[in-house]
Design a binder for these strands. Structure first.
Lengths: 217, 217
DNA sequence: AAATATTATTAGGCGTCCCTAATTGTTTAC
DNA sequence: GTAAACAATTAGGGACGCCTAATAATATTT
């Protein structure tokens, strides 16, 4: 079992390990957890002793299998709680993060399982980030927003970053759902709004906010 | 804002203030939070400085208005989370307490409100304890113990006084939960044990300790 | 009332996690 | 290849919340 602080370090190291290529240094960890580099050295010692990470001046820090498992559970809980806060309590996606930062540390043997079941086994959190499964598997993560697509390109809707009912109803009205093909016809530099063709023939104009809320592939 | 530890002290002092008559001493607080009396003295100083309690060698400790408000919010959150864990995640009532101890400290301006709304504004937690309302009001709390019922009378379980898992599991085994009908068949003057009929047809004998731990109406 | 027991308090110290300042290594620039 | 810059580390210390041991204050016995 880890302390709250240790968990936050593990999570930070996990996040840093996804930005592949870069070695995970005391300095980068310090920045990630908003702490002085000297403090990180202390914690590196502690986490190394607990066999949660390995550390090497040359290779930097790396999660051990045990550490990775712990980190993934924290991320899993964080994202599940975000879904709860968003879908069940009606918070919008910019409010859920800070609370999830606290909730992710709640300890109980099968809490994540129960929560997952209660929420209907969601694959993505309200921000479109994939929720690790209990077996450690990760749903494919999508990172391209409709707003990032070039004019003339076609894509397919894979996730929604905003899951509010007002947005979902708007999507319903536009006949947009997971799998829908969208072609970018035009972009307005001024406000980021874009003209898109939905499916075969229907064309409409959507705002940047809209285009920032759809993940595509 | 209080630290997690401060909140636990406030909650303990609040609980002690309900056992009316008894003055709240460093020793009684120490026992309630499972800590050495010397540590309590430190915290009494801190809470006094923060104007959350007042302390007087003769009168003992007492929550200020500010402290009482903070304590009541913690209790409110604790009990709401218990309802969530029980009703939504399907935990037994003997499992919810320890998780609620953690969840009660989650900080967010209107979290209690949202949770309350989501749960349908429950008046009682899974143990039958009243959930403080956002305006500070308290649903009626029950004061009649099963042990006070006369022979031949019927009643309904409304709350449990003892929330230890060993007791709650015993209840589970007897199929006794909130709402269960109980009829007092006989009482043994010698040791206060009683013969009770649970529900329609099952009859058993329980100790005075048991009968003192069930609140009925 | 004096002796004894109990409670409250002070003093000093420990572990965790943080800091600043000083030192040692390691790059990068010239 | 050396100077300057940057990164890693050590040393020492602080706040928080806990402890034990010693002492002071208060209750309880006798």
């Amino acid at each position: 079992m880890q302390t709250l602080t240790e968990e936050n370090y593990l999570k930070a190291i996990y996040r840093l390990s996804l930005d592949d290529g870069n070695k995970i240094t005391p300095t980068s960890i310090a920045e990630a957890v908003s702490v002085n580099a000297a403090s990180v050295i202390d914690m590196i010692k502690k986490l190394t002793e607990k066999k949660l990470i390995s550390y090497d001046k040359v290779k930097g820090a790396k999660l051990t299998e045990k550490g990775a498992k712990a980190a993934l559970l924290i991320v899993r809980k964080h994202r599940l709680w975000e879904v709860f806060l968003h879908d069940k309590l009606g918070y919008n996606w910019d409010e859920v993060h800070e609370m999830a930062e606290q909730l992710e540390h709640i300890q109980h043997e099968d809490l994540a399982e129960r929560l997952d079941e209660f929420l209907g086994y969601p694959n993505y959190d309200p921000h479109g980030d994939p929720i690790p499964k209990s077996n450690g598997e990760m749903p494919k993560s999508f990172t391209t927003f409709l707003s990032q697509m070039a004019v003339g390109k076609s894509c397919r809707v894979v996730a929604v970053k905003d899951t509010s009912s007002v947005f979902l109803q708007y999507l319903l009205q536009l006949s947009v759902s997971i799998g829908t093909k969208i072609k970018v016809m035009d972009k307005v530099a001024f406000d980021g709004s874009m003209s898109i063709q939905i499916g075969k023939d229907f064309t409409t104009i959507v705002s940047q906010k809209f285009a920032d809320s759809l993940l595509v592939d």
